[in-house]
Design a protein around this nucleic acid. Structure first.
Length: 215
DNA sequence: CTGTGATCATGA
DNA sequence: TCATGATCACAG
């Protein structure tokens, strides 16, 4: 629909131009139908904004704006604060990369364009907010790294059973699957492969709230 | 089945 | 009200 932005400056300019508009207005321009609610279209808003900004990654495991190394995340907000956690990426079956530096979490979060969208009301009337282009500051990176090391450390020890969404100050591990019957492979405490529920890394709403506030 | 995009629904 | 655990759609 639209060309990909050629620079961060162009990307932020285009994102800023969406600020204040409703999803319904944007959908009409893009000739996209608006769903009654998001129960069966949970990624609709995110996909709409991707289309408007010329994101090109599709479902490939690369940044939305590959040439710029920027990831796009829409985030549902009410009263100026995020109402939901933010999915980052799946947990690799073997527990993950050897180090934080190589991790998918760190690469995903290296540069993110956050676009707040109203969390409540009729979908077509929900307003898009002002974008913020973010990279973790030293404190945020330290928190993310510490959470990541704790969680992946447990996974590598085969202590998947000891993990739930309560662990982690900023980053948490939660189910990420079509339903509760879904399974994937993981190592148990004896080092044998076993079937478990697929998990994904998520950013807590508390964490995204602070980064949106000071960026 | 794994990746992308996320929000829903329920109990505390 | 809020976080956790569950769930939805679609591409490849």
């Amino acid at each position: 629909m639209f060309d990909s932005p050629l620079s961060e400056k162009e990307l932020t300019w285009r994102a800023a131009a969406l600020s204040g508009r409703t999803l319904g207005e944007l959908a009409r321009v893009l000739d996209v139908a608006v769903p009654e609610d998001l129960k069966r279209a949970k990624g609709w808003g995110g996909n709409l904004v991707e289309l408007a900004l010329g994101a090109s990654a599709g479902n490939k495991p690369i940044p939305d704006f590959f040439a710029l190394g920027v990831e796009l995340k829409t985030i549902p907000c009410a009263a100026g604060r995020p109402r939901e956690s933010t999915f980052v990426c799946g947990l690799p079956a073997d527990g993950g990369e050897a180090s934080w530096e190589e991790s998918r979490v760190r690469h995903k979060l290296a540069r993110v364009l956050w676009i707040p969208i109203d969390a409540h009301g009729p979908v077509a009337l929900r307003r898009i907010g002002a974008p913020t282009l973010w990279s973790p500051n030293a404190e945020e990176e330290a928190t993310l790294r510490s959470d990541w090391e704790e969680l992946t450390g447990l996974v590598r020890l085969g202590e998947l059973a000891g993990i739930d969404a309560r662990r982690g100050r900023a980053l948490q591990l939660r189910p990420k699957a079509p339903d509760r019957r879904a399974t994937t492979w993981a190592l148990d405490e004896q080092g044998d492969w076993m079937r478990t529920m697929p998990l994904g890394f998520y950013l807590r709403a508390r964490f995204t709230a602070t980064l949106l506030a000071h960026s």
